[in-house]
Each structure stands twice: as C-alpha cells, then as structure tokens.
Write a protein that binds this DNA or RNA. Sequence first.
DNA 1: ATCTTAAGCTGATAAATATCATTTTTTCAA
DNA 2: TTGAAAAAATGATATTTATCAGCTTAAGAT
Lengths: 249, 249
Amino acid sequence: MIYVRFSFFRSWYFYTRYFRVMGRCENCIIRQFNSLRAMGNEELKAVSESKTSRKIGKGEALFGEGEKLNGVYCVRSGISKLSKLSVNGKEQVVKFAGKGEVLGQRSVIVGESSNLSAVALSDMEVCFIPKEGIVNALHKNPNFTMEVLRHMAHDLKEADDVIVNMSQKTVKQRLAEAFLYLRNNFGEDKDGFLTLTLSREDMANVVGTATESAIRFISEFKRDGLIRSSGKRIGIVNEKKLRELATGF
Amino acid sequence: MIYVRFSFFRSWYFYTRYFRVMGRCENCIIRQFNSLRAMGNEELKAVSESKTSRKIGKGEALFGEGEKLNGVYCVRSGISKLSKLSVNGKEQVVKFAGKGEVLGQRSVIVGESSNLSAVALSDMEVCFIPKEGIVNALHKNPNFTMEVLRHMAHDLKEADDVIVNMSQKTVKQRLAEAFLYLRNNFGEDKDGFLTLTLSREDMANVVGTATESAIRFISEFKRDGLIRSSGKRIGIVNEKKLRELATGF
DNA sequence: ATCTTAAGCTGATAAATATCATTTTTTCAA
DNA sequence: TTGAAAAAATGATATTTATCAGCTTAAGAT
C-alpha cells in the first residue's frame, strides 16, 4: 500500500514536472497580452481543459521547420527565436517571441506545416493549446478572429519593414538597429545589459550576415563606445549614436 | 426638353467614364479569387452599392505611403506594385498585386495609414470599397474574417520567404528567381515574353540592388542564353537553368 | 522628322561583405 | 583545476555589389 502511494506520488511529481498544469487560462495574466483575451468564457474553459504546459530548456526546439503543428504555443516565460534554414545551411532569424506571444498560429490557421522553426534562447515555460480549441473559436467568435487578424496584420507590417531594411541598410546599420530592438522588446537587467543574450552566430543570423562580419562590427561598436560587453552580455552605452547609425543620420 | 435630356446623357456618360459602375459585386467574377467570396448576400449588396470603380493609368498611384485609406481596392485588371521608399530615396518593391487581389486590407483592419505605396505598372481597373462595408463584415461574418485571415497568413509566409531570400541569396539568384516568379504569377504573351514588363529600375527595386547591377546581370543572362529580350520585354529561354541558378543547384 | 530627355548599357573603380586561416578566450565536463 | 571543445576574435584575401562617369539607344513631344 505504501509502495502504491509512493509510486503515485512519484508519477504525480513527474507529471507536474514535465507537463505542469499551471492553472486555469481564465486567470492567466499572459492572456492579456495576446489574442486569447478576446475569447469567451466557454471557449476559454475548453482551452483551459485541453491545454498542457511544458518547460523547454535553452537550446531545445518547440517545433521544427516543416513540422505539422497540432496546436499553438503560448509563451509564459522565456524567449524563442523563429528562424528558417536555407539549403546551404545558413540560418535566418525572422522573429523573436517572448512572454505573451502565441507561436504557430499561422500554420494552424492555414492548416499547413510550419514554415519556421522555433528554438528556445532561454529556458521557457509554454502552454500548448491543441488546435481544435483555436479553430473552433476562430469559426464561432468574430472578436477572437478579428484579434488574431490584427496580430497577423501587425506581424505582416513588421515583416515588410524587415524586407526593406535587409535590402536598403548596411550590415552595420542593421546590427545597430538589432541592439536597439533587443532593448526595446526585451529590456535590460539591473547591470544595464540586454536581457536577451545571443551568441555572435545568432546575432549574425538576425542581421543576415556572416558570423565573422557580425563579430567585427560588434568589436568596432565597442571601440567606438556605442556598446560594452561582458562575456556574451552586451550593454548599450550610447543609444543616441546607435540610433543615428541605424537610421543613417 | 431636348437640351435637358442631352445634358442628362452627357453627365451620365461622364459618370460612367470616370466612376464606372461596372455592375453588381454579386456577379463579379473577380470576387471568386479573393476573400470577398466569403461575404453573405446582404453584405455583398451593401458593398455593391457603396463601391465605386476607377481606371488608373500606368504609372499613377492608387495610394501613397503613409496615406490614410478609407477603403480597400479590388483589382479587376492590370498589375500594381506595392513598395516602400527609404530615406535615401531608394525604393523596395515588396509585392505585386494583379487581378483579384485586394489592396489596403491590412491598413483598414488595423486602422493605420498605409505602410506601402501602390503604383500601377499597367493600366488598371479597380473597385474602391469604402471601409465601412469591410469593417462591418469583419465584425459580423466569421467566415469572411477567417478568409481574410487566411489571405494575410499567406502573405506573411511569403514575406518571411522574401526575408530569407534577401539575406541568403546573391543578387544573381534573386534576379533569376524574380523572372520565374513573374512568369508563374502573371504569365507570358503569345510571343513568349513576360506579360508584366518592368523597367530595369523596377526590376532592381524588386531584387533589392542597384539599377546598374540589375542591368549587368540581365545582360549576363542574355549572353548565357537564359533569357532573351526585345525592348523592355523579356522572355524566358532556359527555365531549367534559371531555376538551378535561383536555388543554387 | 528632329530635338530632347529618359532609359539602357558598359567600364573603371571603390566599398562592403564573405571566406579562409589562425589565434585567443571562454565554457564546461571530468 | 585542468584539458578539450566551442565560441570569439583577428588578419589576409577573395568575392560581391555599389558608385560614378560616359556613352548609346529608345521614346515622346513639338
């Protein structure tokens, strides 16, 4: 008997460790940041019951390019990169997603497999929401659909901006912009370093350049007093100059 | 009396010439190609009554970057480029829109002014649909909203692909790809030339390079027998090789 | 038809960026 | 702590692309 209870306890522990039920969606603060806030009570209840929560370690993948998604991921904490691999093995980071963002929406909506891969850049807590709940709400709740549409419209505009930047700005300008973006979107810690710490390689893949080139410009920025660094961590020293550089004066 | 009738006739002629009522949306074939097909009868009737039709001459603008849009444009014929200007005056073409496509949707949905400008690359016939009809349908008809969402999801995926191409492919590769794209999407005429004829400058702005560079590669493609040209018109000669070039073998 | 202007083309050169090779530093596991 | 492996940094060089200048051809207006 004792053995049974012990075993039960162990499996319960295991369960909560790897598929933690973090509580009810209705009470989830994260929801306020994304389109799920437009869901009705009934829908939210259904989602809450079908969702599972997971922890993703730094470097682990949420899903890969070309993978068929059976639902979306709602980020509770941590940051993930969304990227695409080319034939020659080079990676391009298309977007970062942090707290409150929903990943995989696009694929679930059009019913295609994902065109991007999602990899955790820091330890993450995410909720997995099976697609049925989403698809159902999309067909029945115009407010929700509208909200999702608004988010997608926003993403599309951002993507257009990235295209223009890619074609019209130099690597140096894009790099400067990337640092400002990282600070605006993910903030900095108490020591004034960017919260999101990226490897030089990742940085290069955001900006769309060779790793060595990224490193060279980062060194140059340091020499010129635009940024400072401690290990991988990078701090913005002269925001004004960085901004001037990024916009081309 | 006769004078009155004559005058009436004249104004009617004027009206149909410049704001031609092309018929009822319910019967419009174009609708089959875009999200408007998901509209209900009532909604379609309202749209049909509020819409106006316009002709746009080659080179004229449908709307400019930063302009506040009071509705969307549905393309009946002709092709338009959607592009963005940078501070230094360089233009980047982000997308082409031909028959059946709806322009300005994104801006109307989020209620922002347009982030892109739309200029006719050939004479166009478009229907202008005031935003009220669209917004109304978006809030009341989940099917329509869903359809718009699907289109936007598709655009977003395409935009992501463009980002990756911009950062990972050479100008030559992107140019080869552009020719294939133009053939796939807008076809070729009876003589085997691409239907959509672009200036070298526009071509460069699609690919994201300097006009001279685009010209150089076009010359090279001609020398290598990949394409041929007659004036501005360009014909694809060796699709296989172009494709190999574009994908990097 | 011709004049004018814009577009297309080409060469020379400069600038930006990638690649390869090597060294230094950091990280992390034994 | 140390030693191996990964990441970062740097130099040398090659490649790609942009810029500038001049020249030719095509197109549109009078």
